[in-house]
Structures are given as structure tokens and as C-alpha cells.
Simulated scan of single mutants.
Amino acid sequence: MKARSLAFPEGILKTVLGRGYQIHPEALRLLEAQSEEKVREVLDSFSERYPDAIVIEAQQIEALLEPPPVEQAPETTEFKTTLIGEITQMYDGSGLIQRCPKCDRWIIDNFCMVHSDVEGVWDLRIKARFDNGQERYTLIFKKEVTEKIARLTLAEAKLLGEAATLERIGHAVLGKRFEIGGDKLKSGNNFLVKAIREVK
């Protein structure tokens, strides 16, 4: 059974008045049906949600007592597909790169265009041009797929350095035919690679 207003050392009404509010009788009855912990939670939320209110109304308490809505997962803007073709070029921003720890953007020399001076986080990535004979795509490889195709871990790449890492990745992918699977993004001909294997 829930604790009612009598469980409060000072009573709900005195607590409300002590916070500088007046309260409608129906709103008071709604609070009296709640536990002491819940009442304090509602009053704390009330001051944040209704900062200019002086009188606590019943409908405001009802709104605060409602469970929060369940967030729906956003609809995806991608679709899965498979392509076969050749990687013909690697773009700037491939290889051993640094990212901004705040916005995840590619940065150079620990400088982010949005957050200025930051301590960059190392990452491996490939951005490459892919031609399947009919269309050209920009492939985007995240770290896990880059490590797999280059047979090189991020830790090993940091020891090699940026230039040697880029050269090794180039030897692994340029001029070769691959079957790739992943998500073709809605914006332009960008393709997020999730699986890749060389084909002869």
C-alpha cells in the first residue's frame, strides 16, 4: 500500500507551501495517493517543467504522473545491397586518421573545425572510389572492415605511422575486384561497407 500524506513529516500541503506554491484541492488529492518519494520527484519535476507557475493544477500533476513515452527507433535511410567491381582510387582521409572526441569528425593536427583544439582519437578508415562497370560509388570502410581487408590492426597502424599505413592499405585494395556487401546510403552514391571479399 502506498504511503499517503500522513507519512510526510511535515505533510504534503506544508511541503508544497514551503516551496512557494499554492495547490488546487484536486491536485493535492492526486499527490496524496502517491508515495513520499514519488511526491518529491513530481515536485522537483514541476519546478523544471513549469518554472513560472504559482498554483499547481490537477492537469499538471496528471501530466507529470504519466509514464514517459517510449522512444521509437528512427526509420533507417539506408538499404542493404551487394556490389561487384574494382576499387580504383583512395580519397583523402583514408588510412590512419584522427577524429574529434566530441563530434567524431576527421581532424588534422588535433584541430577540429567545430571544437578547435582537441586531443584527437586514432582510427582506421578507407574512403575509396569503386567502379562496377555501370556506376561509380564512394566506399566508406569503418575500422573493423579496414582492419580485415588490410590485415592490419589499429595498434599496428599506430606503430607503422600514417604514410606506411596508407601504403599498406593501398596495396591491399587498389586495382583489385571485390564483392562488397553493406548499405547504400540515400545521399549520393555513398556505400557503407560491412563485408568484403576479393573475387578473381
Rank of each mutant, 00 (worst) to 15 (best):
Gln34Arg: 15
Ser35Val: 00
Ser35Tyr: 01
Glu36Ile: 09
Glu37His: 10
Lys38Thr: 10
Val39Ser: 08
Glu41Thr: 02
Glu41Met: 10
Val42Pro: 06
Leu43Cys: 03
Asp44His: 05
Asp44Met: 02
Ser45Gln: 13
Ser47Gly: 12
Arg49Met: 04
Asp52Cys: 10
Glu57Val: 11
Ala58Trp: 06
Ala63Tyr: 01
Ala63Met: 08
Ala63Arg: 14
Leu64Cys: 12
Pro67Trp: 11
Pro68Leu: 14
Val70Ile: 09
Glu71His: 06
Glu71Ile: 12
Gln72Asn: 04
Lys80Val: 09
Thr81Gln: 11
Thr81Asp: 08
Thr81Met: 12
Thr82Gly: 04
Leu83Met: 04
Gly85Trp: 02
Gly85Tyr: 09
Ile87Ala: 00
Met90Asn: 08
Tyr91Asn: 11
Asp92Val: 10
Gly93Asn: 04
Ser94Thr: 13
Ser94His: 09
Ile97Gln: 03
Pro101Trp: 10
Pro101Val: 13
Lys102Tyr: 12
Ile107Pro: 01
Asn110Gln: 03
Asn110Phe: 09
Phe111Pro: 03
Phe111Thr: 15
Met113Lys: 15
Val114Asp: 06
Ser116Thr: 06
Ser116Lys: 15
Asp117His: 14
Gly120Thr: 03
Val121Ala: 00
Leu124Gly: 07
Lys127Met: 08
Ala128Val: 05
Ala128Arg: 11
Phe130Leu: 09
Phe130Pro: 00
Asp131Cys: 07
Asn132Arg: 08
Asn132Tyr: 10
Arg136Leu: 07
Tyr137Val: 04
Tyr137Ile: 01
Phe141Gly: 00
Lys142Tyr: 10
Lys142Phe: 15
Lys143Met: 08
Glu144Asp: 15
Val145Arg: 12
Thr146Gln: 00
Glu147Phe: 05
Glu147Lys: 08
Ile149Met: 08
Ile149Ser: 02
Ile149Gln: 05
Ala150Asp: 03
Glu156Cys: 01
Glu156Met: 00
Leu160Ser: 04
Ala163Thr: 14
Glu167Thr: 03
Glu167Trp: 00
Arg168Gly: 03
Arg168His: 11
Arg168Ser: 05
Ile169Phe: 05
Gly170Asp: 03
Val173Asp: 05
Leu174Ala: 13
Gly175Thr: 04
Lys176Asp: 10
Arg177Phe: 09
Phe178Glu: 02
Ile180Cys: 06
